[in-house]
Simulated scan of single mutants.
Amino acid sequence: MINNKISIKGDPVVDIQRGAIGHRATWTGLTYTKAREAGKAEEAEKFIREAISETGEVQGAAIKSQCKDPQNVTCFAETFLTPNVVKTFEIEFKTKTEDRVDLEFHHCPLLKAWQDLGFDDATCEKLCDIAMDGDRGIAKAMGFEFHLGDTIAKGCSTCQVSFFKNDK
C-alpha cells in the first residue's frame, strides 16, 4: 500500500512547484497508460525512458556548468537540490560529502499526480522507475554513479536515492 504523505503544506512556492511537477507527471502517466491501452506499452516505455534520460542529461550538463567544482558531490547536491526542491520533495540528507550524497525523499509530487489519476500501485511503481531515468541521466552527465533503493511507489516509507563518485 502506497503512503505518499505530505507534511509541508501551505508554502506558496512549494505548492506551485508541486503543481508543475504533478502536471508533468500527468502527461507522462497518461501517455504511458494510453499507449498500454493500445497494446503498445513496451514501445511507449522505450520512447519515454529515452526522452526522460536525455532530459536528465541536459539538466545534468546545466548543473555541472553551474558547479564551481563539478567533481565535488556536495557542490552538485547544493546546486541541484535547492531549498525549494528540498521542501517540495521533503528531502532529508543522510550523507553529504565531496564523494557521496545519500537522500531520503519523504514525498513525491509525481507519485501524487499518478495516484490522483487513479493509477494502480503497479502502474505507479513502473512510472516511478521510468521517471528515475531523469536522475540517472543527471548522474551520467555529472560523471557520478546513481543508486535507487527503496521507493514510496513500492510501498516503502521513503525514496532512497544516492549520487556518488565512481571508484573505477
Rank of each mutant, 00 (worst) to 15 (best):
L30Y: 05
G134N: 10
D167K: 15
A113M: 05
A25W: 04
K154P: 07
T74G: 00
T95D: 09
S7C: 06
R100T: 08
V86L: 01
G10I: 01
E145W: 00
G56R: 12
G155A: 07
T28C: 04
G143D: 04
T79Q: 08
G29F: 08
F144P: 11
N4R: 14
D135V: 05
A141Q: 10
F76Q: 01
E37K: 06
D15Q: 09
A139K: 15
A25K: 11
G134S: 14
A38K: 11
E50V: 11
E42P: 02
D69A: 11
A62L: 07
E98S: 13
G149Y: 07
K94M: 12
E90F: 01
A153S: 15
R100D: 05
G56D: 06
A139C: 13
D11M: 03
I152W: 05
I6M: 08
F80K: 02
E50D: 15
D120M: 02
E78D: 15
G39S: 04
V58E: 03
K154C: 04
K165C: 05
T28P: 01
K34W: 10
V86A: 01
N3Y: 10
G39A: 01
N166F: 00
D15W: 01
D167T: 15
W27T: 12
T88G: 03
N166G: 11
I16R: 06
I91C: 00
I2H: 10
T88C: 03
L103W: 13
F119N: 01
P12S: 08
D121T: 12
W27N: 14
T123Y: 04
N3W: 01
G118Q: 00
F105H: 09
A77V: 00
K165S: 08
V101T: 06
I8N: 09
Q71E: 14
T82M: 02
M142Q: 15
E145G: 14
E43G: 08
I21C: 03
F105N: 05
I138T: 12
G143R: 06
T82P: 04
